[in-house]
Amino acid sequence: MLTWLPQNVSTFGGDVDHLFHIIYYITGVWFVAAELFLFYCLVRFHKSRQAQPLYARGESSSQAAWVLVPVLVVLMLDLGIDKIGGDVWHRIKLELPPAGDQVHVTGKQFNWEFTYPGPDGKFGTADDQTIENELHVPVGTVVRFELSSKDVIHSFFVPALRLKQDAMPGRTIKGWFEATQPGTYEIACAELCGFGHYGMHGVLTVHTAADYQRWVQSTWGAAKAAAK
């Protein structure tokens, strides 16, 4: 199961994968134990091997312990998972590290719009550029995004970043990521948004620093890019 995880290229993606592993092994042990117990019972206590069933009502405290003690262990493991999972959540969604780069992401039926502030680093100015379905970011930089939608709910999903956040019409949702490896990765929409939902497909390009400069220059022109 674990090998099916796609390559991870974000700083917090490792935490997500780690959490996945922890839960996988904890629940895996319980799953295997429960199924083995069940299967053993069906074979060992089949009526062909068992003349007189054991009479146990499970109501006295010593008998109830056979259920309640494992349940207590489950409770303890639950709390442990809560703790670890809570930390991961906190890191991804609650802490917003200082921005190295910014972008506005807007979902609409059925495209992603990425608006870049341009060389002046400010949104709402003349040099803003909006590019459909192409997100360009430099590697090793914290990218802060503001997510919104023009029509229905979309969900900004970048599997390689382990990042997902719904884009909600009527509100702006802030988030961040930091890519660790250059390359191109796919962006999908993870919330049913109409008949074109399956084709709402974007590409994230993570550039090396030099590469990113080249992209900025080709997009805004050399003169303006120099101002950045």
Binding site: D15, V16, L19, F20, I23, Y24, I26, T27, D78, I81, D82, I84, G85, G86, D87, V88, W89, R91, I92, K93, S155, F157, P159, R162, L163, K164, A190, E191
Partner: peptide, 14 residues
């Protein structure tokens, strides 16, 4: 449990 853990649900949701 996987889905109930918010940190992991970021990836597995939907």
């Amino acid at each position: 449990i996987f889905l109930g853990s918010a940190g992991l649900d970021v990836y597995l949701h939907g």
